[in-house]
Simulated scan of single mutants.
Amino acid sequence: MKKICSVEIVGGFLSWGKTSFINSYLEVTRSIEEILVIIQCEKGNSKINEEFLSEDKIIIKQFKNNDEITERTLNRIINFNNPNRIIIEANGVQSVDYIIREIHKSRGRLGAVFAILDGKTVDIFIRSMGVIMLPLIHMANMIIINNCEDISYEKNRELKVLLGQLNKEAYIEQSSSSKDFYRIISSSRVINKGLYKKIIDFINRG
């Protein structure tokens, strides 16, 4: 039986902390043995940590937009690189719906969907760009409201209530800044380092 490749999505607008989240996420969840492909659909200010780029088991592929992540593209990456996981850093100005449909058609299996949101402006973006924001929020398994140190306690509470109404199943976390991602991920009840690796290993042995 062929190895199953989990395909995870990290979404959010430019400069909201997607790449910083991926760096912290890799520190917590990756195992030395696994081959991992990171697909970036936009180029922000942050970069994948150099220590990861020096490892031959972590492969970076860059595209211009979400529409390039087709069934054919995913299958080519899976066939050529034989990864255990693919992490897609989605383009923030396009809906993730297309990527999710292509994943379902490919040899990959949709894994976790993470929504990284900026606490200062996310409510404005939901109102003005709901066609892009709402699919991501609705599909997310985990929502992180970033930059909460820059907003009031009342707004923090209102955002958590709003997002909880839009997605009743997601785990919602609040971070003071991107520097807080590692603490949130490593202490999360959802993302447990040891358990996560055991699940991935079990799936890949299937």
Results as ranks from 00 to 15, higher is better:
residue 2 K to I: 08
residue 3 K to E: 11
residue 3 K to M: 15
residue 4 I to N: 10
residue 4 I to M: 12
residue 6 S to F: 12
residue 6 S to L: 15
residue 6 S to K: 14
residue 6 S to M: 12
residue 9 I to V: 09
residue 10 V to I: 13
residue 11 G to L: 06
residue 12 G to R: 06
residue 13 F to A: 05
residue 14 L to T: 00
residue 17 G to A: 00
residue 18 K to P: 01
residue 19 T to R: 02
residue 21 F to P: 04
residue 22 I to A: 00
residue 23 N to W: 09
residue 23 N to S: 05
residue 27 E to L: 10
residue 29 T to C: 12
residue 30 R to M: 14
residue 31 S to G: 06
residue 31 S to N: 07
residue 32 I to H: 11
residue 32 I to S: 14
residue 34 E to C: 01
residue 36 L to S: 04
residue 38 I to E: 03
residue 38 I to A: 02
residue 38 I to L: 05
residue 38 I to M: 02
residue 44 G to P: 13
residue 49 N to P: 07
residue 51 E to S: 14
residue 53 L to C: 08
residue 56 D to G: 08
residue 60 I to H: 02
residue 60 I to W: 04
residue 61 K to I: 07
residue 62 Q to S: 14
residue 63 F to H: 06
residue 65 N to E: 11
residue 65 N to G: 12
residue 67 D to H: 13
residue 70 T to E: 06
residue 72 R to W: 07
residue 73 T to H: 04
residue 73 T to P: 04
residue 74 L to N: 01
residue 74 L to D: 02
residue 79 N to S: 12
residue 79 N to K: 13
residue 80 F to R: 13
residue 80 F to E: 09
residue 82 N to Y: 04
residue 84 N to F: 09
residue 85 R to F: 00
residue 85 R to Y: 01
residue 86 I to P: 01
residue 87 I to E: 01
residue 87 I to V: 03
residue 88 I to L: 01
residue 89 E to S: 00
residue 89 E to Y: 00
residue 90 A to K: 05
residue 95 S to W: 09
residue 95 S to F: 07
residue 95 S to E: 05
residue 96 V to K: 03
residue 97 D to K: 15
residue 99 I to N: 01
residue 99 I to P: 05
residue 101 R to W: 03
residue 101 R to E: 08
residue 104 H to V: 09
residue 105 K to P: 03
residue 107 R to M: 12
residue 109 R to T: 13
residue 110 L to K: 06
residue 110 L to G: 02
residue 114 F to N: 06
residue 114 F to R: 02
residue 115 A to S: 15
residue 116 I to N: 00
residue 118 D to E: 04
residue 118 D to W: 00
residue 120 K to V: 13
residue 120 K to T: 14
residue 122 V to A: 01
residue 128 S to W: 11
residue 128 S to V: 10
residue 132 I to E: 04
residue 132 I to W: 04
residue 133 M to G: 09
residue 134 L to G: 06
residue 135 P to L: 07
residue 140 A to Q: 01
residue 142 M to Y: 06
residue 143 I to Y: 06
residue 144 I to Y: 01
residue 144 I to N: 02
residue 144 I to W: 04
residue 145 I to C: 08
residue 147 N to D: 08
residue 147 N to M: 13
residue 148 C to T: 14
residue 149 E to I: 12
residue 149 E to V: 13
residue 150 D to N: 15
residue 151 I to Y: 10
residue 153 Y to H: 14
residue 154 E to R: 15
residue 155 K to A: 10
residue 156 N to K: 15
residue 157 R to F: 14
residue 164 G to Y: 05
residue 166 L to R: 07
residue 168 K to H: 12
residue 170 A to P: 10
residue 170 A to Y: 09
residue 173 E to L: 12
residue 174 Q to S: 12
residue 175 S to K: 05
residue 176 S to R: 15
residue 179 K to S: 15
residue 180 D to W: 10
residue 183 R to V: 09
residue 184 I to G: 06
residue 184 I to S: 04
residue 187 S to P: 03
residue 188 S to I: 01
residue 190 V to P: 03
residue 191 I to Y: 03
residue 194 G to F: 08
residue 194 G to T: 07
residue 195 L to G: 03
residue 197 K to F: 02
residue 201 D to N: 15
residue 202 F to Y: 11
residue 204 N to T: 09
